[in-house]
Design a protein around this nucleic acid. Structure first.
Lengths: 109, 109
DNA sequence: ATCTTTCTTTAGTTGACACTTACGTAAGTC
DNA sequence: GACTTACGTAAGTGTCAACTAAAGAAAGAT
């Protein structure tokens, strides 16, 4: 899940992911879209996306067809939604920990 | 906006951000929370978060109080929501571009 | 069997990033 | 003014990430 977020931090990978959003595409077609970058570079980006389970790979003869993995993206969205909304309970815990540590440095202020 | 996503890709920064989620905290308190990392490291993370406008800094005497910037986070959330849902129209454009480029390599298959 | 096409993998470079230690600075305290 | 508290900044290090060029590997086409 952490890998997914990290993968999405790269603009190029977001662009790639969007390409295979609603349709399968062979690696060449994806690479052709980016004129300023070599094909191996795209291949490596695809590997990262695949490791993060953001895309799936399907072999068809010599070609490899990529497609967005909607499941993972839904999970990631849920993770973020949880991140936005939660954290209030956990917050209190960490605040207490800091307070404790502060106390042993003698009460300041 | 891109900076915000990149900033969030780092787990430590997510933890920091969560700390100042609903309350202001001085840098020292934040740093104290992380025992395994030096204070300057946290200071640098805070700078990244500030550059990404994910937190705001307020000076109070010698102290600097940090707090999450809800506005930016709302924007980022909107950006992601747009990213999930949209991209269908844009997709067609890029597909066409790829198609054109393919055609000039002579029709394959 | 050889040659293409399609795509990955390897090797190597460059730059970015998280971190540390050491130092600087600014505001309060004595 | 000297000292402390609370922080940032500078400089240097190890690691990882993105890229390129060159070399595989694997399935068809001739």
């Amino acid at each position: 899940m952490d890998a997914a977020l990290k993968a999405l931090a790269e603009p190029r990978r977001r662009a790639i992911l969007r390409l295979v959003w609603s349709q399968e595409l062979p690696a060449t077609d994806i690479a052709d879209t980016f004129a300023d970058v070599s094909r191996p570079a795209i291949s490596q980006h695809l590997a990262v996306l695949k490791d993060a389970k953001l895309v799936t790979e399907r072999r068809d003869g010599t070609r490899r067809l990529y497609k967005a993995n909607v499941d993972t993206m839904a999970q990631l969205r849920a993770f973020l939604d949880d991140y936005w909304t939660s954290g209030l309970e956990r917050l209190r815990d960490v605040a207490e920990a800091a307070e404790t540590r502060k106390r042993q440095t003698k009460g300041r202020k």
